[in-house]
């Protein structure tokens, strides 16, 4: 397995990289961690004319905290996110997802920008970004634009990113102190892409009596089922304003079955995936209910 011939440019500035992207259009490919790209090149699934290496560009990497947000450079490695104290404190959902992203060797090289641009439907980071309502900064020669994660993923391995754009930064609102989250995925080996996974965040409205605590906000995202992360908007709408109990959970599972349309793959038929998604939803809701004290 050898890649076909291509040119390679080690870009040292964002301008240089963007200029090359403009010049080559769809014949160019950005290489970040290379963990997904190198395999596709060697398998000759992708045969670009030129590879633009963005690893030497300053300022594309690192996790920063602002007053309201966490800003993550696109070139930040999975390992850095996994070990970041800022992420642990302000983005607990991502912190709990990171151990599921690939294996150590891959985490050492793979980047968040690469993962989001790749848009694997079974990947953890796209799902978390959708759940957390992240925004992505896309840069091109003509400037920058911001796209919401919820609009970014358009289909199987496809995104709203144009060929002349580089994903440069990910902005995620800090998690509020009372905000709750849940993450779980089902796979046969630790570190594999999920058969089915769930990422969710929730906020609670305090009732006058503690037992009346209900959900103020809820975002449940299922991944590994459809061609992109699926936000269960209807199911969540149904749950907001209720306090979670056995009945609401049963109803929510039925909603999910109407809302989610899984595609079969080697890891499972559509009905199997649908079943697994309901199991994850139930576990997520039970965990939230335990957190807010409506079920013990």
């Amino acid at each position: 397995m050898k890649a076909p011939l291509f040119d390679y440019v080690n870009a040292t500035s964002l301008d240089q990289a963007l200029g090359l992207l403009d010049q080559y259009g769809e014949e160019a490919r950005i290489i970040a961690g290379g963990q997904s790209l190198m395999a596709t090149l060697n398998m000759r699934l992708s045969q670009p004319q030129v590879l633009i290496d963005i690893n030497s560009i300053q300022g594309l990497s690192g996790v920063r905290e602002t007053r309201k947000d966490i800003r993550i450079g696109a070139l930040t490695r999975h390992m850095e996110l996994l070990e970041s104290d800022i992420v642990k404190e302000h983005l607990p959902l991502i912190a709990s997802a990171m151990p599921h992203v690939a294996h150590v060797a891959i985490r050492n090289r793979g980047t968040i920008g690469g993962s989001l641009s790749m848009a694997d439907p079974a990947a953890e980071l796209p799902a978390c970004c959708v759940a957390l309502d992240a925004t992505f900064e896309l840069s091109s020669r003509s400037g920058q634009r911001v796209v919401k994660a919820r609009d970014f993923f358009s289909g199987l391995y496809t995104t709203e990113r144009q060929d002349n754009e580089i994903l440069t930064q990910i902005t995620i609102p800090k998690c509020a102190p009372q905000q709750l989250h849940y993450f779980e995925e089902i796979n046969r080996r630790q570190g594999d892409f999920a058969i089915v996974g769930l990422a969710c965040t929730a906020a609670v409205k305090k009732g006058l009596m503690s037992s009346k605590r209900s959900l103020k906000a809820l975002d449940v995202v299922i991944f590994g089922c459809e061609d992109k992360p699926t936000r269960l908007a209807q199911t969540c709408l149904h749950l907001i304003g209720t306090s979670i109990d056995k009945n609401t959970i049963t109803a929510a599972k039925q909603k999910l079955e109407q809302e989610l349309n899984p595609t079969a793959n080697l890891e499972g038929r559509a009905d199997t995936k649908l079943h697994l998604a309901t199991v994850l939803l139930e576990r997520a809701l039970l965990s939230l209910a335990r957190d807010i004290g409506t079920i013990d």
């Binding site: 080996r189 630790q190 570190g191 080697l266």
Partner: peptide, 24 residues
């Protein structure tokens, strides 16, 4: 080894043919 009805192997890579790993 997953094959389809036309006799095509569908998982001829280490990403899709799962071998045991130490952690499990």
């Amino acid at each position: 080894c997953h094959y389809d009805l036309q006799g095509q192997m569908l998982n001829a890579s280490m990403a899709d043919y799962l071998v045991p790993m130490a952690s499990e």
